[in-house]
């Protein structure tokens, strides 16, 4: 299997854990995995990306433009920022709830994410829009969206990763007190993803 998955968002949204879950789940099926992440100063509220590359075809830790099978975007503008990584027929899963930068509160430009979602719909073959606030409210935690979006991706059936391996990884990597809630978030995401029929 060869798959390129790009996760993007804003520092503090939990993209790193999500990419670790994908990578280690793939390793459970004896796949070769490479990834690269943003660490350091940019983590403080800046744009962050994780490139996850599964399979022997990947030489570099960074995905070349036009090669991502999936973009998992934790924030609408970040999906657009990274769109040139997407394959022509790649899938975008995007959270519709924007993270407004401090500069936006200081000098309003009216950014609310809707323009970004419209642009994604115009450009891409498959865009799955999910509302993180609604999911988090239903599950009862603000910190589970990273696992929920992973559920959506698995639910589409196009990730090439087994659900069981992801669940095993959640069970290994997430602290016991948060495990149950994360598993519920994953299943909720999976149900959403399963509704989409992707050709």
């Amino acid at each position: 299997m060869n798959k390129n998955i790009l996760l993007c968002g804003v520092g503090g949204q939990g993209t790193v854990l999500a990419s670790k879950l994908i990578a280690s789940a793939a390793m459970r099926s004896n796949e070769i995995v490479h990834s690269a992440e943003t660490i350091g100063m940019a983590q403080r509220g800046g744009s962050v990306t994780s490139h996850v590359r599964i399979g022997a075809n990947a030489s570099s830790p960074l995905i070349p433009y036009g090669s991502a099978d999936f973009i998992l975007a934790f924030e609408p503008a970040e999906a657009v920022r990274n769109l040139n990584y997407l394959k022509k027929d790649g899938i975008v899963i995007v959270n519709s709830v924007p993270v407004k930068p401090v500069t936006e509160s200081l000098r309003s430009t009216g950014y609310d994410g809707t323009e970004m979602i419209e642009y994604l719909r115009k450009k891409c073959k498959t865009v799955i829009v999910v509302n993180a606030e609604e999911i988090c409210r239903e599950i009862g935690s603000t910190k589970i969206f990273n696992v929920a979006i992973l559920g959506v991706a698995i639910g589409t059936g196009k990730m090439g990763l087994s659900k069981e391996n992801i669940i095993s990884e959640i069970e290994t990597r997430v602290k016991e007190s948060f495990r149950e809630i994360n598993l519920r978030a994953f299943e909720k995401g999976e149900q959403i993803g399963a509704k989409y029929e992707i050709k």
Binding site: G45, G46, S47, A77, V80, V102, E104
Partner: peptide, 9 residues
């Protein structure tokens, strides 16, 4: 579209 700038804070 114009993207929001996100300097670290």
């Amino acid at each position: 579209p114009d993207l929001p700038v996100r300097p670290p804070v």
